[in-house]
Simulated scan of single mutants.
Amino acid sequence: MPEIRVSHMAKTFGDVSVLHDIDFDVKDGEFFTLLGPSGCGKSTTLNCIAGLEDPTEGAIAIGDRALVDRSKRIYVPTEERNLGMVFQSYALWPHMTIKKNLAFPLNIRHADRADRDRRIHEALDKVGLAHLENRYPHQLSGGQQQRVALARALVYSPTVLLLDEPLSNLDAKLREQARAWLKRLQSDLGITTLYVTHDQDEALTLSDRIAVMFDGVMTQIGSPKEIYERPATAAVAAFVGSCNFMLGTVEQMLTDHVQVRLQATGTIVTVATDTDWLPGSPVTVAVRPERLSIVADEPGSRDLNVLETEVVTTAYVGSRYEYILRLGDVAVQVVSPDGSLTGAVRLVFGPDDAHVFPGESGPGTEALDLMKVTA
């Protein structure tokens, strides 16, 4: 299967610019996800590749075949791109049986009856629904309709599969099952897949690589582990998973570490960094809840950062307890297997457990303000 290559693509609607210099590639057989909040441009990016939108600038290619190149005036119509697409709504014809829904794209391509019937049976068999070919969409569950939509996208052997939030209409439990099934099917078929979602769990579970988008810009591209453990910005850290943000000021650099005085308490913490920071610079320290440990006594190691906090709320969520702790006038989220913690406790984290980002603006401080604890 060929790779997808998007080069310096931009898109405007009237005077509104919705995509800015979008540049990425999807490797052969890769499961690549566009992740971001509503309105960030991920679906517009997908629609430009599918041919449902026309980019204002840039180029799109599948393998060696150019689909769009604005500088060379190349534009391949949607129906000639041979791309499979599954929409959020599934878009199944309600008056047609499942078999006829799958036959529709094959009839457009003038497939003969024997070839059409074979392809339909194979596609439905791949999604485990060959025995339901004579039912109508309203006679199927949401999960089954989702699989029919996927089978219809696969029935004519597309070069690339495009998925626009196909699991968003499923309930939580069924969505978990669908994730595992979809990833297994994509891996078995080896088809290059571009997936759009705003659900971080879907992105982390399904993807080989993820592109995180904000306001029409790709902020970071990397593996799920890279995106989660080494976010490029505070915005990425805030959107992908839970994260605590603490405002502060740089005290001094120590080779590959920076010392930061926290605004909330005046405590100095040490964070590993590969950036040179100037003393006095405003920064935001970010720490994932699971990277924080709650201890009753002073830790033995001097390398650890220690914060004096107080338990505000405790919530039992099955496999763990989630705490909100008071740190000065702001709140910190922590997870722990111990549900007996109360009163004054110490938070501990190592220099490698945190990240430091420039400035005191953006999603980091917004999240901080929303979590402020009143006295």
Rank of each mutant, 00 (worst) to 15 (best):
G14M: 05
D15A: 12
V16G: 00
S17Y: 12
L19T: 02
F24Y: 09
D25E: 12
D28Y: 13
G39A: 06
C40W: 00
A50K: 13
L52R: 00
R65H: 10
R70G: 14
S71V: 05
K72V: 09
R73D: 13
P77H: 02
S89F: 14
N101I: 01
L102E: 01
A103D: 05
P105S: 12
A114S: 13
A123V: 04
K126V: 10
V127R: 00
L154S: 00
Y156Q: 04
L161W: 01
S168N: 15
R179L: 13
R179Y: 04
K183A: 10
L185E: 01
I191T: 11
T197C: 14
H198A: 13
Q200W: 15
E202D: 08
L204K: 08
D208C: 06
T219Y: 02
Y228P: 00
E229Y: 10
E229V: 11
V240D: 07
H257D: 14
R261G: 14
R261C: 05
T267L: 12
V269T: 11
T270C: 10
V283M: 12
V283P: 00
T284C: 10
T284S: 09
T284I: 11
I294F: 00
V295R: 09
P299A: 15
L304W: 09
N305E: 04
V311G: 03
A315E: 11
Y323V: 13
L325H: 03
L325C: 07
R326F: 08
A331M: 11
S336I: 08
S361Q: 09
P363N: 14
